[in-house]
Design a protein around this nucleic acid. Structure first.
Lengths: 158, 158
DNA sequence: GGCTTGATACTCGGATAAATAGTGTCCGAGTCCTAGCGG
DNA sequence: CCGCTAGGACTCGGACACTATTTATCCGAGTATCAAGCC
């Protein structure tokens, strides 16, 4: 039960794209900012593009930028873009197997164990959906004054 | 971000050990009940032993049984026994890397991104810790009357 | 007949392979910019 | 001098290896049971 490091990269990238906005930032520049593998970061950004969180532009002066207002991008959006939206807990319905297999009508109701797990995951998602990229950016900017303009400068310099 | 199927197996096993109590049940029997791989199930049970959730006895008429009252065994206990208690999200502190690395004193405060992720995980754990094996067993017994005695019979027959 | 003793069979436990998912890398398709050429 | 055109360079995007984790399996250590032999 471990989450891909791509999630961390993607979230940081969203913050930085937010500060770089409205400029486009290529993968190379974005990766260099935190010494990340450029090609692998590109993979994560591709996932964000598919999810409609960022937009990409090819060619010289191309790159990525946020596709919508950072106040409309929740952490959950980014996590699901990278990790997929499947449940972490996978119920394989073993109750329907074996000599004492539960009857099909009894299985109309979901497995109690799965219900508990799904409920917990729902709580997790609720927390993630309650925070937006804009909010995180605001907090970070308050903690480290000038980080926004600094990052903007560095990402968009010639 | 997927959870081991061992978690599902372990939780079902806890329910069944609860119903088999105070009889000991060997891995073979427990696995046969749901057509699981006996050796792999044994691995999960070993994890439960290490966590102090079940106790094991070797030799003929040996097997596993719950180590304490099922009302004192939370779902979180079982999940952490199998999956480990490490955070799913791993902050690698990439903010401290690169040309604009955050200063050490700025990193006294935890990374905002990590904070959000950890908070969500805490909510998840809270949900899992709020449900005990005894409660799940009670609900299942209400949904499928007679399941407790049926499982007990089958697991403890000669 | 009861007790000791040895062998036996059954159990868990950790060490050992195969399969799967995550991680990292590479090269090709597309696009824009630039420089040169002609009008 | 201005517009057109061909080349080049830079970007993303998906396809291709490598590593770590999960999944599955096997064999050895330990123990209670059972049976036989002895007192």
């Amino acid at each position: 039960m471990k989450m891909s490091v791509g999630v961390e990269w993607a979230l940081h990238s969203c913050l930085e794209l937010n500060w770089a906005s409205p400029q486009l930032v290529p993968t190379t520049r974005l990766a260099a900012l935190h010494e990340l593998g450029a090609t692998y970061l590109n993979k994560q950004l591709q996932a964000l593009v598919k999810a409609g969180i960022v937009t990409s532009t090819s060619g010289p002066r191309g790159g990525f930028t946020l596709a919508r207002d950072p106040a409309d991008i929740t952490v959950l959006d980014v996590v699901e873009a990278v990790e997929g939206s499947a449940h972490a807990f996978r119920c394989t319905e073993i109750r329907q197997k074996g000599p004492l297999a539960a009857s099909p009508e009894a299985c109309a109701r979901p497995c109690q164990i799965a219900s508990v797990m799904y409920k917990a995951e729902a709580a997790w998602r609720r927390e993630l959906a309650a925070v937006t990229v804009a909010e995180i950016a605001g907090t970070v900017r308050r903690d480290i004054p000038g980080v926004d303009t600094g990052v903007h400068e560095w990402l968009t310099r010639a």
